[in-house]
């Protein structure tokens, strides 16, 4: 079966962002970029399913400017077979991304779409669910385990109270949580091989999707900075401060 994995180019998770002084957004010039960590987990899961003989082809798709071809190449080096870059200079919202992905799903007809549960930049946590709804597909979000048998996929989900398991009829949409797997590192030979794997480029404007969101970003500010407090010498001083100064115990 074919698996489609949408991957997003995002800021590296170790980098602490700076807000621009004109409040128009976050300063990304010269910052280290990477595959969104949850998408990396999605790629890894797809590759494992192919290694188990369950998947036969893995297609990765990324939507964004030219630079996101880097992340597609990374996914190809991790084991995906083929890439699709949907090019746009506009920064799109989840609904627009989901509509573009819907077109890709219609064209590619994958049995499984694996997305990250959340982008670590927008922190939206929407695209997979929106895609599932637009395609009329069932969803297994925040997955920590994915088991395929026949035309069903059983997904163990990380929920607030613990774990929940659902069974979905394929085709289906799955979004990854952190504990689904631990992604491998791409080896040098695989990085070289990835350069020769096919990567199609299409313009987002050609998909017949309205790309403008009705949500406007008015401003982006730095959060209120927390003042570091004091170091206490011992437990007795800590307890005294909590009782008398903070009055929280």
């Amino acid at each position: 079966m074919k698996i489609l994995v949408p991957v997003k180019r995002a800021i590296d998770y170790n980098v602490k962002v700076r807000v621009k002084s004109d409040q128009s957004g976050v300063d990304l010039a010269n910052t280290k970029m990477a595959i969104n960590p949850f998408c990396e987990i999605a790629v890894e899961e797809a590759v494992r399913l192919r290694e188990q003989g369950i998947a036969s082809e893995i297609v990765v798709v990324s939507i964004g400017d030219k630079a996101c071809q880097e992340q597609i190449r990374t996914a190809l080096a991790l084991g995906a077979d083929r890439g699709l870059h949907i090019e746009t200079e506009q920064s799109l919202e989840s609904l627009q991304i989901a509509k573009l992905l819907q077109k890709v799903v219609e064209a590619e007809q994958p049995q499984l779409v694996i997305l990250g549960k959340q982008s670590i930049d927008s922190d939206n946590n929407q695209t997979g669910q929106m895609l599932a709804a637009l395609c009329g597909l069932p969803q297994g979000t925040f997955a920590s385990k994915v088991e395929i048998s026949g035309d069903k996929v059983k997904v163990t989900r990380e929920v607030d109270g613990g774990l929940q398991t659902v069974s979905l009829t394929l085709p289906a949409v799955v979004t990854t949580d952190l504990r689904l797997n631990e992604p491998r590192y791409a080896s040098l030979p695989n990085i070289m091989k990835a350069k020769r794997k096919p990567l199609d480029v299409k313009a987002a404007a050609d998909f017949g999707v309205e790309l403008t969101s009705k949500v406007k970003l008015l401003k982006v500010e730095a959060p209120a900075q927390r003042q570091g407090g004091v170091k206490v010498a011992d437990v007795a001083e800590l307890v005294a401060k909590l009782k008398n100064e903070a009055k929280v115990i």
């Binding site: 929106m130 969803q139 607030d160 009705k214």
Partner: peptide, 20 residues
């Protein structure tokens, strides 16, 4: 996890954005 799970479906079916 309940709200995050179904609300984006609602937004997509109503053809509006979700603000998370």
């Amino acid at each position: 996890t309940t709200g995050k799970n179904f609300m984006p479906r609602v937004a997509a079916l109503l053809d509006v954005a979700q603000i998370s």
